[in-house]
Every structure is written in C-alpha cells, then in structure tokens.
Design a protein around this nucleic acid. Structure first.
Length: 317
DNA sequence: AAGACGAAAGTGGTTGA
DNA sequence: TCAACAACTTTCGTCTT
C-alpha cells in the first residue's frame, strides 16, 4: 500500500524532523482521532498512517493499571484447544472402582462448570482469532487505534448477535473495520480494505450491509469533503487549495449535485478545479490516480460542477 | 508528445416487481 | 430471482497546447 514512490512514504521520513516538508514550519498539530499530523501553517498532512500503539488511558499506580487494563497476557494463536479438559461420565475412578455418591455429585458439578466455561471460551476463542485479524488489518491499512477499538466493539456486537456463525471471521472483521472507518470519518474505500482480505470485496460488502441491518450500527453517509485532505496531501497541494476544494463541494451539496455520485470522484473534481484556480496545475490523470477513480469520472464531475455552479476557470494561454 | 475531451460499449451493484 | 437502471470504467479516436 505504502509505496516507496508515494508522497506518503516521503512524509513519514520527514515527520521525524518535526518540520513541515512543504512550508518548513515547525508548528505541527497531531489529530489522534485521524492519526494524522497536520501542519498548522499550510495544512499539509504528514504521516497520516502513524499508528498509536499505546493505551488511551493513563495509570499512576499499579492498582489503577490493573483496573484500567482491558487485556491480559498475549493471546497465542495455537494450543488453546489443548488446554481444554473433558470430564467423563460414568461412575468409576481411574482404577475402575465404583466411587461414592458424594464424589459423583461433585464431579457432576465440576462437569457442569466445565461445559459452561467452554461455551464461553468458544466466544473467546473466536475473539482471539478476530483480534489477530484486526491487528493485521490495522497494521496493513495504517489505521489509528481509535478506529481499531471501534472496529472491535462492532465485531463483538456482531458476535453477540450471532452474525459471525457461517461467515468467515476475516470478512466480518473487515466489514467491522470498514464500518469503524466510516463512522470515524477516516476515508478508506471498501476496495482498500478488501485488498488485504482473502474474503474478497463482495463478501466484505455483504457482511457490512448485514452489520448495518442486524447489529443496528448507524454510519454517517460518506461525505466527499472527507476525502479532500487525503487526496490533497497526496498531490502536495496547498492548504488554500484544499480549503477551496471543500468550499466547492459545499456549494455542490447545496445545489443538490452530490446525491448518488461517487464521493471520491466528486472530491477529485473539486480538487482539480481548486488546483486550477490557484495555479497549482495538476493533470486530470494525477488527480484521478490520487482519488482512485478514472480520468473520465473526474472529467464528468468537473464538467458538471463548472457548468452547474458557474465556476470560473483561469483562461489558459 | 502529452493532455483534454467525448462517444460508445462494458461492468458491478441497487431496486422494484 | 430477474430485469431495468444509474453510475462508473475501459477503450479509443480526435482535438488542443
């Protein structure tokens, strides 16, 4: 995902110097909910894929740490099954002797708890796998911790609603991650997430819809403006241009041009126009690539926006 | 030569019967 | 479950810079 030739890659290196690579300012603001470091001067987004590995709480005493910690020892992928013991029916001990009624009753009780404990552990076992999956996805997509937390919450909900049975843990978790991204307005497309999942896009999409319906998860509609900062920073555009693009989108929304259109395409078109107006020329191809849509879509949207909104473009010489 | 443009045919997903 | 449908993509020829 993070290619060596992408601006993001560059940005990550630059972030170590705590200096904006665009304007050189040292005034940097960290937005933990998005996992982005933003230049306060020009709006440049650096190292958007930074991951917060720490806990989101602080503890000053060991007791506090104990109380606030929600995790235990690392969960190992293997060997969980082998820890389970079966208690046999039948009233004989290991040597084949009849055992007392008292002992039998005690064993009955033990067996009952054994079964209960195992029923619970099946959920936990599933969850353990799911967490592994979540961490893998999170690392590959470069998602900040709040998103991962939220994704796990959603996944647990799905698990409780019996939505996981019959589906792969992987695809349900991918759907949960996608939902969490949408909720927290961290624009990741379904394709990006599906790219790192064996289940495939279709499967993930189906699970996602299921989540929305069955687990009553509400997700705000995708907003084209949410895509702008990411695309803008990829193209190394100035803060003004990004601001202008968002303005254009706001106008478009007010004029009712955004309904049913691919938000990424709209964002790309707005950026293309804004860049042109500010003299930071980018080709349609570049913008399209950054927004992960085709030139044609950028073109169609941009033509539409210019026409319907009566936007003025600088005359080309 | 590269970018912008538009037409036409193809694709995957949604909707309504 | 199927067909109609809208939006987007792919492809390609033409025009502009």
């Amino acid at each position: 995902m993070l290619r060596r030739d992408s601006p993001d890659y560059q940005a990550r290196d630059d972030a170590a110097e705590l200096k904006c690579p665009q304007c050189g300012s040292t005034k940097l603001v960290y937005d933990p909910s998005r996992g982005e470091v933003i230049c306060a001067e020009c709006g440049y987004v650096m190292s958007e894929r930074e991951i917060d590995l720490g806990a989101e709480w602080r503890a000053f005493t060991p007791e506090e740490r104990e109380r606030r910690s929600r995790v235990g020892a690392p969960i190992s992928r293997y060997g969980i099954e082998s820890l389970v013991t079966d208690i046999d029916w039948g009233g004989r001990d290991a040597a084949g002797r009849e055992i007392s009624l008292r002992r039998k009753l005690e064993m009955l009780r033990l067996r009952k708890w054994q079964v209960r404990a195992r029923a619970q552990s099946s959920i936990e076992r599933n969850l353990a796998q799911a967490v592994i999956e979540l961490e893998r996805l999170g690392a590959q997509l470069g998602l900040p911790k709040p998103v991962l937390d939220r994704a796990l919450e959603i996944y647990k909900k799905a698990l409780e609603s019996n939505l996981v049975r019959g589906r792969s843990i992987e695809s349900v978790m991918a759907a949960a991650v996608y939902a969490a991204c949408r909720e927290l307005k961290l624009p990741r497309t379904l394709d990006e997430i599906a790219m790192y999942t064996r289940a495939g896009r279709k499967d993930v999409a189906r699970c996602y819809r299921l989540l929305l319906r069955e687990a009553s998860i509400k997700v705000p509609l995708p907003n084209a403006a949410d895509f702008v900062p990411r695309i803008g920073s990829y193209l190394r555009l100035s803060g003004q241009t990004i601001k202008r693009a968002i303005e254009i989108l706001e106008q478009a929304r007010a004029a009712g041009l955004t309904a049913g259109k691919d938000p990424a395409g709209l964002a790309a078109a707005a950026i293309y126009i804004a860049a042109l107006q500010n003299g930071e020329i980018r080709t349609q191809k570049e913008v399209a690539r950054a927004a992960k849509v085709t030139e044609v879509t950028v073109r169609n949207r941009y033509k539409e926006l210019v026409k319907k909104l009566g936007l003025k473009l600088p005359v080309k010489k």
